[in-house]
Write a protein that binds this DNA or RNA. Structure first.
Lengths: 191, 191
DNA sequence: CAGATATTATGAGCTGGTACTAAAAGCAGG
DNA sequence: CCTGCTTTTAGTACCAGCTCATAATATCTG
């Protein structure tokens, strides 16, 4: 068959674009030693959009990626928040969060979830975790939908005492107590 | 002065493009109710590249961003390890690990560093964190080179008591006590 | 050799611009 | 009011990097 060459070229084309998505048809034509028109036909056959569209797709993906990183301020998704009282967030455990050997979720994801929620609950410009008391009760596996609930149990001056419980299917899998220190000077003086 | 209008427009232009970088000059002209040429002049004056270039810049930035996320999985670098006795690891705090507001490193990076080191020290096929007791002593800022030292202080059956201290320039910034449970046998996790 | 498939060539048209020239509009001072 | 200045708008030529359509050539295959 003549078309084996074509198939090979298609493979190579996809490979090349995977490694370097910013190549024009002209550059591709040179590296694959065919005409520009052939490249265009190949792209159409493979459903590969033109350079500009590829670039735009990546840039748009970048935006959501950047937002995702921003949102990591709260590890998990903030569902409900009553400042200085309670906060609720959720987090889905994905396969990349678990230890390979055991399939059990790495502990610091739960810690991070609880820690960030605790900080979010505190109504202060800047807050820092001072002390934490953590207990893992039940191992969590990939696919679990965790729900964290943080409650401010006490407050003394600039210190907030916060209790966070994480549940998976109504079973408490994690519990932590945090002491969060507010660094909001104005607030301290105002009260 | 007539040029106040221009300055205001420049401000608005930058704002608009910050929120939505994917606008053509034509769209910008409509939203700002001026001609396309004016927009072009404004872009030149402000050093803002054309749409395609902006898009490409973002797409390129996206690639390095993705790599950065991959690397985050390694929480610290293991320097020394004596199984069931001590372990030492290092971690450099990069600007993306700090809270924007304060510039202070997010607490769970230290926690994750300590947690993974504690688990590494335990000579067991599979180990899980059961309980943690954490204290943040000094805020850490970007650029800090943290050194964590984990010591097994006690051992009872399948439970390891581990103390982890993290120092920055010989100053102790973080301390945690973990109870790690080995799952070598069929034992269930800590209670 | 005919016929199918693959490749190349050619040209018109599109988007979103740059670069340059020039004209019109807006305002200020003498 | 006219003169000079900045600002804004308009218009033209040109470019990259395509799409779409149409046609010619090359290559293989039975």
């Amino acid at each position: 068959m003549n078309s084996t060459r074509k198939l090979i070229r298609h493979e190579r084309l996809q490979h090349i674009l995977h490694d370097n998505p910013f190549m024009t048809d002209e550059q591709l034509a040179k590296t694959l030693k065919v005409s520009v028109q052939t490249i265009r036909l190949d792209r159409v056959a493979l459903g590969i959009p033109e350079l500009r569209e590829r670039t735009r797709d990546m840039a748009e993906g970048a935006q959501s990626k950047l937002r995702a990183i921003d949102k990591k301020d709260i590890v998990g998704e903030l569902i409900d928040l009553e400042l200085n009282k309670v906060g609720i967030s959720t987090l889905k455990i994905t396969p990349d969060m678990v230890l390979e050997k055991t399939g059990v979720a790495r502990g610091h994801y739960m810690f991070a979830m609880a820690d960030t929620l605790a900080l979010a609950v505190v109504d202060a410009q800047t807050a820092l975790t001072g002390v934490a008391n953590v207990k893992y009760k039940v191992p969590v596996y990939a696919g679990a939908n965790l729900v964290a609930k943080a409650e401010v149990t006490n407050r003394r001056d600039d210190k907030y005492f916060i209790c966070v419980r994480i549940k998976n299917n109504n079973e408490e899998v994690f519990r932590a107590k945090f002491i969060v220190v507010s660094l909001d000077d104005e607030r301290k003086q105002a009260e």
